[in-house]
Every structure is written in structure tokens, then in C-alpha cells.
Simulated scan of single mutants.
Amino acid sequence: MRIKEKSLETEHAGGIKNAFLHNMNHEIRTPLNSIVGFMQLLDTDITTEEHDLFVGIIHQNTELLVHMIDNMLLMASLECGEYLTSPIEFDVSSLMHDLTESLQGYIHAGVELKVNVHEPQYVCLDLNSLRRVLKGLIINADKFTPTGTITVDYNIDGDILNVSVTDTGIGIAAEDQKKIFGKFEKLDQFSQGLGLGLPICKSIVEKLGGRIGVESEPGCGSTFRFSVTTIS
């Protein structure tokens, strides 16, 4: 039985490695090719409008590449136990408001990002971790919400902070809801990224001693919820 378990573990690890290499090959080459191609075009006889357009494309793809590399490094630090947290006391209401305001520029046209406003509520948590999870869930919601709203809500129940991110997007089939927190899993193979956004959110939440899950139905949007324990 032990040999069989080891064999399954090896097979699973091999599958993850293959998925990683496949995603890396496609996702990283795509922005790199754009950056190199449009940089070469800058040296040709082009108009001012074309120059500005090409510089914008280079900038956009550079940001995408940096984001993917940051996610790979962050996932590695979580897996090898080097991810550090530093709990501080802060007003979660201000965090939610400031974060949603700062992300407005990332949300595409036709989608409204909003947060349900509550009275000031103080918690003691790692601020950067909470911000990373929220940003990851909001950006993920925006990917799959063509039009409508993304709503952030939260409450504190004793020493538990409960947070939800609800969208009016395309939703997730029941059989796929079990996959989305797995590394390199992409339900839409045409979407940008390595498939690490939700796994990183899950790993960070668990690092904080909490749990995360999703409720969804195809065509009816999705709600991602997570709960973490605050420190007294």
C-alpha cells in the first residue's frame, strides 16, 4: 500500500511539473515576444501615434511579466516556509475602502467594484497578507465578470474576520469548483496568467490559520469567502 501511495504522489508531482512547464512556456513567452517585437519596431520609421501605442504595449506586457514572476516567487516562499507575517493592529474598514479605491484602475469597463461600508473595526493581522488575498480575489473576479458588479463585504464575529468577494460573472460549474485552488489549474486556457492566483490566496489564508472556499453557479456569478482568526 505504501508503494502505491508513493507512486501516486510521484505521478501527481510529475503532473504538476508538466503543467508548470507548459504554462511557463506559453505564458512567459507571450509577453516576452511582445516586448522584444515592439521594441524592435521602435527603431523603425513610425509615427508619433504608433510610437506611443508601441510603448504602451511594451509597458503593459512588462507589468504582466513582472506580475507572473512575483507570483512564482511568492508561491515558492509559501511552499518552502519562508513566507513571513508581521501582525499589526489596523482598521479593517479603512483597508477595504483604500484597497478597492486603488484597484479601480485595474477593473475593466462595464464592471463596478464596490465595498459595503461599515463602522471602523480594528483587527490584529498581517496587513500585507490580507491585502494580497483581497487583491487576488478581486482581480480574479474581474477576469470572469464581463459586466455587472464585484462587491466586497466583511464582518467580525468574535475573533474571526469573515470576508466575501461576490461577482455577477459567468460562474463556476460544481465539478470545477474543486479544481480552482490547485496550482496551475486554469478553467479558461485563453486567460492570462500561470494559474497561481487562487492557490496563492488559499496558501496565504491557511498560513494565517484560516480557510477559504467558493459558492457559485454557472451564469449566476460567484462568491469567494475566507475567514481568518484575529490576534487579541
Rank of each mutant, 00 (worst) to 15 (best):
R131F: 14
E79F: 13
E11C: 09
L8Q: 11
D52W: 06
D157F: 09
I58S: 03
T223H: 02
V228W: 00
K17F: 15
L208H: 06
M1H: 14
I231L: 08
L42P: 00
L32G: 00
Q177W: 01
N71H: 12
L73V: 14
S216L: 03
K4M: 14
F20E: 09
I88M: 11
G37K: 09
A13E: 13
D153R: 14
G221C: 04
I180Y: 04
M39G: 04
K114S: 12
D70C: 03
N61D: 11
K186V: 02
L65V: 04
G171H: 05
H97N: 08
S94L: 11
V214T: 01
T85P: 09
I160K: 11
S222Q: 12
I160M: 09
D43T: 09
T166K: 07
L78H: 08
I46D: 07
H67L: 13
T100G: 01
G219T: 05
K135W: 10
H26D: 13
S7K: 13
I16L: 15
L42H: 02
G182D: 15
G148Q: 13
E185C: 15
L64T: 15
R29F: 11
C124Y: 09
I170K: 06
V123F: 08
S77C: 06
K183C: 08
G15L: 07
S191Q: 03
M96Y: 00
F226D: 00
T166L: 04
V111D: 04
V214Q: 01
S86N: 15
L84F: 09
E50I: 13
T10P: 03
Q177L: 03
T44H: 05
